[in-house]
Design a protein around this nucleic acid. Structure first.
Length: 253
DNA sequence: AAGGGAAACAACCGCTCTGCT
DNA sequence: GAGCAGAGCGGTTGTTTCCCT
């Protein structure tokens, strides 16, 4: 019993890709497009596993990839997104054009983790290390934030399944096509907001995520947190779309 | 110049999720 | 609803490169 292997391991190459293999893969995908990774290696004349081809294409050969060092802005954005999403690398990558989940994951493990540790911040919880032993009530506001997002997802799903949009919770505005995001040119403006300590002329970072009532809300300005119709939802910001059942498999790119 | 350790990066593996039958 | 295949994700490992002694 059990599933069939994704490829015939005895007849596949492993390890680093050669220039010739890259060329074959690029040529094939240019001609036929992405998709059907299982049959692609054979069709392209590659002795590789389909998963391996997919990974190679997505992480290194795609023409829209941005190579080179991460900018300070990207650094800070990754940290912010990680504090909200955890190790959801694909979601984080979805907010960083030209970057891949694998690249961000590696960068996180090699650079940002250390950077946070040197700042005295625990990279897993995003809390100051010396506060980690405090009771959970004060030590985990960001996980609370994450819970709220999960709850928001659950609610949206139930709402759609039930098909009774405005009856179950009329006060909660979860319409996902309400308005353009606050950030006309995300992530640039978002980052500017971050740099200003989450404050801006309009709303703090948490509010921009649609979490006005959370503990993360730092702006406390009038009109912020009123859940008004002009507030962009978390899902607009995160690139999430309505009608999904999970974070996975979202159209992020 | 050589050796060893650390850092960075590429790739693999196992698992989960989704869509189809 | 169950079973299967394909696709995608996150964790981990292996290899290469860099730096210090």
């Amino acid at each position: 019993m059990g599933r069939s292997p994704c490829c015939e391991k005895a007849h596949t190459n492993k390890g680093a890709w050669t220039k010739e293999e890259d060329d074959r893969l690029i040529t094939y995908i240019r001609a036929h497009g992405e998709g059907c990774w299982r049959s692609l290696p054979k069709a392209a004349g590659l002795l590789r596993c389909g998963k391996s081809c997919r990974l190679r294409w997505i992480n290194y050969l795609r023409p829209d990839l941005k190579r080179g060092n991460f900018t300070v802005e990207e650094d800070e954005l990754i940290i912010k997104l990680h504090s909200l999403l955890g190790n959801k690398w694909s979601l984080i990558a979805g907010r960083l054009p030209g970057r891949t989940d694998n690249e961000i994951k590696n960068y996180w493990n090699t650079h940002i983790r250390r950077k946070l540790l040197s700042r005295g911040i625990d990279p897993a919880t995003h809390q100051p290390i010396n506060e980690l032993h405090k009771p959970p009530a004060t030590a985990a506001p960001l996980s609370d934030l994450r819970d709220q997002m999960d709850a928001l997802v659950s609610f949206r799903i139930k709402k759609e399944e039930a098909g009774t949009e405005h009856q179950q919770c009329p006060d909660l505005n979860l319409e996902l096509r309400i308005s353009p995001p606050h950030y006309g040119q995300f992530p640039l403006q978002a980052d500017q907001q971050m740099k200003s300590g989450g404050r801006s002329d309009s709303h703090c970072f948490a509010c921009s995520l649609g979490l006005q009532d959370s503990k993360e809300c730092s702006c406390r300005i009038e009109g912020c947190g009123d859940g008004g119709g002009s507030t962009v939802s978390s899902y607009d910001f995160l690139g999430l779309k309505a009608g999904v059942r999970d974070f996975r498999g979202l159209e992020m790119k």
